[in-house]
Design a binder for these strands. Structure first.
Length: 372
RNA sequence: GUGACUGUGGUGGAGAGGUUAACACGUCCGGUUGUGGCCCGGAAGACCGAGGGUUCAAAUCCCUCCAGUCACC
């Protein structure tokens, strides 16, 4: 009941949604972009910064926090919100993505996954039951089923991972004990439409507080990612949040809101920020490029963020080239602000019934290779 | 003035007779999508201080000059 989900508006031409999702730590207005704070910190940004740029939801990672400093420690210190001083909603990923990203250092079987720690080589078991326990210890508002994120093109593997993900989803439902956390199911099935629809239907039948689309932006084509997103969203229930995991770029956000997604997360803005790339309308700029050496202008004239209202591109380039901490901070701040601002613009356009026009105009600025 | 040592791409610095002169930093250009890794990939850039000599072959050996460093007058 505390997880009241309301569709505030639907853009009639596109079906894009603007929703309100109530959690114990506040209401999330969608579409929403959640910056990623893997180790209980959105790298280079403080909670104060995040608040200032309008972040409402932040991601953290169960695998990484389980390994270090430990979910029980965080529980004993009062939970993740208190630990990282973020009193707004938090979502924890279960560790399912690490099944994919850390493929060379894990073993999967029907019961779960054994990871070999990249920190000290020790073994760490993750099962659906343990993933629930870890996430209950962490105490995020939204917790994720333990799933198997698989590479996109191998049909047999995708199907096996999907079936395993379904079984694990049932076990997660059974293992969950806290009522102040919403558990989201995760749709798998690679790029295969029939598997994806089957997966979405299966999870819908099980019944979750929300539904995520996993296993995308892992190497498939953009057109395939959009296609899968669209077909999954037609199956998912209307009255529950839809979360596209790990996505993405500004174009991806617009394209997938068009297809019915409410929630996004991605490391992109902070990773780009730490490596000297800034998101701007129509693409991105590489601040390492010598063309910015003498630029006294902000990276975006129209941007209202702290970075753009105080610093010129030449300075940001200098900070990048000298690997200064402030550079990571300022560019990450701009990039996260850029995506959050985009979601706000989209929400406003949806509520105003002009999202089709907004999306067309917005996407026109981006290069053709969007559908590569 | 005398003696010793040293001169290799923007910088540091390998190399001590044999085809495309190592490496690092810097420079330049890509990449980055539920974050192991301020990371990954690539490119440009040196007629080896100058001139002469020895040799089939010289950054490597010899001579002269120039420059720098140090020591001593």
């Amino acid at each position: 009941m505390s997880f009241n989900f309301v569709v505030d508006a639907i853009d009639e031409k596109t079906g894009a949604r603007a929703c309100s999702y109530n959690t114990h730590h506040g209401t999330i207005k969608t579409p929403v972009f959640a910056p990623v704070g893997t180790a209980a910190t959105v790298k280079a940004l403080s909670p104060r910064d995040l608040q200032e740029i309008g972040a409402t939801l932040v991601l953290a990672n169960t695998y990484h926090l389980r390994l270090r400093p430990g979910d029980e420690l965080i529980r004993d210190l009062g939970g993740l919100h208190k630990f990282m001083a973020w009193d707004q909603p938090i979502l924890t990923d279960s560790g399912g993505y690490q099944v994919f990203s850390l493929t060379k250092s894990r073993k999967v079987d029907e019961n779960g996954v054994t990871f070999r720690s990249h920190i000290d080589g020790s073994e760490h078991e993750f099962t659906p039951e343990l993933a629930m326990r870890f996430q209950e210890n962490l105490g995020a508002d939204i917790i994720m089923c333990f799933d198997e994120c698989a590479p996109p093109y191998d049909r047999e593997y995708s199907k096996a991972a999907m079936i395993r993900t379904h079984k694990w989803a049932e076990r997660c439902l059974l293992a969950k004990t806290r009522s102040d956390q919403a558990l989201f199911g995760i749709v798998q099935g690679g790029i295969f439409d029939d598997l994806r629809s089957e997966s979405a239907q299966h999870l819908k039948d099980l019944g979750f507080g929300g539904y995520a689309i996993g296993g995308l932006s892992v190497g498939e084509k953009k057109s395939e990612m959009y296609q899968v997103t669209a077909s999954v969203c037609t199956v998912l229930p209307y009255d529950a949040p839809r979360y596209l995991m790990g996505v993405g770029t500004p174009e991806d956000l617009v394209q997938c809101v068009l297809r019915g997604v409410d929630i996004f997360d991605c490391v992109l803005p902070t990773r780009l920020g730490r490596n000297g790339a800034a998101l701007v309308h129509g693409g991105r700029i590489n601040l390492r490029n010598s063309k910015w050496k003498n630029s006294g202008d902000p990276i975006s004239q129209s941007c209202s963020c702290y970075t753009c209202s105080h610093f010129c591109a030449a300075y940001l380039r200098h900070l990048t080239n000298t690997n200064e901490i402030l550079g990571h901070h300022l560019i990450s701040l701009h990039n996260v602000h850029f995506l959050i601002d985009l979601t706000k613009q989209m929400r406003s356009a949806i509520v105003g019934q002009r999202f089709k026009q907004f999306a067309d105009d917005y996407l026109r600025a981006y290069p053709e290779d969007v559908f590569q």
